[in-house]
Amino acid sequence: MIASRSPIVRLAVQTVTPLALLVGTYLLFAGHNRPGGGFAAGLVVGAVVTLRTVAGLQRPSHADVMVAVGMAVVVIVSFAPLLWGDSLLDQKVVEWKVPLLGKVKTGSALPFDIGVMAIVVGLIVALLDGLSTRRRTDDGPGEPELLT
C-alpha cells in the first residue's frame, strides 16, 4: 500500500488533478488541428495517475480493463471500414453543429485517439502496478531517508 505521509504533497496533487485532466482532455480533442493527440493526452492522464499513486490518493488498478477497452476501440475503428468495402483504417470526417460550441468538425480519428489514450494510460498504470507491489531487492532494501 502506497501512502505519502506528507499532507502538502497530497494537497498539491489533489489540486492539480482536475487541471491536469482538463489539459489531457483538451489535448485529446485539439490534437487534430493543433499540438496534442491521443498519445500526449494519454501521457498527461498517466502522469496524473502516477502522481496520485505516489501521493497515496489511489492505487494503480484496472490496467487490464483500460488496455482491453482501448484495444477494442482501436481495432473496431481500424477494421470497421472493411465492412463497407473501404480500405483498412479509412477516415470518416463528420461535421455538425453543436449548441454553444458552434460548428464542430471531427472524424473517426477521434475514437482512434481515444483508444490510443486508453492504452497508454493502461500501460502506465500497469507499470505502476508492477513497481508498487511487494518486490524482491537484490542489493538490500531501499533507502527510506532518500528525500528527507
Binding site: G31, H32, N33, R34, P35, G36, G37, G38, F39, V74, S78, L88, L89, Q91, V93, K105, G107, A109, F112, D113, V116
Partner: peptide
C-alpha cells in the same frame, strides 16, 4: 485526414497502420 496538425494526421490517418 480532415486535420491541420500534420503529425497527428500522420499518426491517425496516413500512417495509422503503424500506429495500430
Amino acid at each position: 485526414g480532415g486535420g491541420k496538425n500534420l503529425v497527428n494526421v500522420i499518426l491517425t490517418d496516413l500512417r495509422a497502420i503503424d500506429t495500430l
